[in-house]
Design a protein around this nucleic acid. Sequence first.
DNA 1: ATTACTGTACCGTCTGGACGGTAATGTCAA
DNA 2: TTGACATTACCGTCCAGACGGTACAGTAAT
Lengths: 186, 186
Amino acid sequence: MSGNRPSSRSRILAAAAALARDAGPGRLSLDAVAARAGVSKGGLLYHFPSKAALMTGLVENYIAEFEARLDAAVTPDDSGEALMKAYVSLSLKSLDEKHPPASWIFSAMAEDPDFLQPVNEFRRKLLQRLLAGSADRTKALMAYLAIEGLHSLKLFGSDQLSGDDRNAIDAYLLSQSTEIPAALRE
Amino acid sequence: MSGNRPSSRSRILAAAAALARDAGPGRLSLDAVAARAGVSKGGLLYHFPSKAALMTGLVENYIAEFEARLDAAVTPDDSGEALMKAYVSLSLKSLDEKHPPASWIFSAMAEDPDFLQPVNEFRRKLLQRLLAGSADRTKALMAYLAIEGLHSLKLFGSDQLSGDDRNAIDAYLLSQSTEIPAALRE
DNA sequence: ATTACTGTACCGTCTGGACGGTAATGTCAA
DNA sequence: TTGACATTACCGTCCAGACGGTACAGTAAT
């Protein structure tokens, strides 16, 4: 779907994401995005004929990128647990990136919650795969939910966790996803 | 701060929350809120002189209500673990209510992320109390994060968890928060 | 007289989006 | 080789509508 143009289209997407982060989710106007991307409004509308199309583009871009990163980390020797490990470390790592998580989500949500449907479906399937390959379903679920919680905290800009606590959780999550016997703990 | 008027003020708050849920976070206009609350726009602005005041009202109302429910469930025999137990069961229960979580959060976020600062601070203090009274800090953190994750899923309208999985998580979380020795599991 | 509104009219700003250009590049037949 | 047309990738302007907020006159209960 997405071509190999490094230029305007992807610059617009990046500008939209950055703007949602910096200016607040409700300030994501086409004018502002165009200005930030160094494109005229007409130019923006050429690539994304409506604001809805921009949002869809953001969503699809996010899913594609996440999927690619996950696939790159796992390679089809897919041992079930390997996927979980990749997911955990990828998610944890993405939390600390300079453009942390998908803050444009709020903009999409504000525009219309339905835009997130593809994301939800993608995550649903992912969780399915994660659970299918896990020795302890409840533990896997807990790990998934905890990561979701970490993302949520970050997304809402809260500063609830101390660095030590965050490290402890990271270590716990990573160790959980690597254990082989799943019966001898502590 | 909030008085004992059962009438317009609280009706407006309820209408705003309902509208954010039904019409989408971005459709929360003063006109729409006034109409839904059965109040004229002038009347709305009498109680909340600006949209910002409305948002602040929503936030304060939420915190006050949550705090009251938590206090009601725990009574100052505060055994540390008792608070965690109350928090877990209260959170789990609130997930299944007909007006599930605070969906107006997205509206506040869209308006200005700073509106959520009081919420974040409240949660931060709560987490501190939760962790202070816990035997196993990492476990407590995991429980908190998992609940956060559950809320996040609900908030984003995703349908990722099957009923069985949700039940398993509920049971696990509840059992975790009730255990006394914290060493014999399974 | 004060409180708690209702109702109407209005204003300035912002926003999505439609629209009409236009310059550069490519395609293709004569 | 050249002229005719098509496509791509934009630019800049304009507009109708929505929105937050103001102003103010009126009303009904306390």
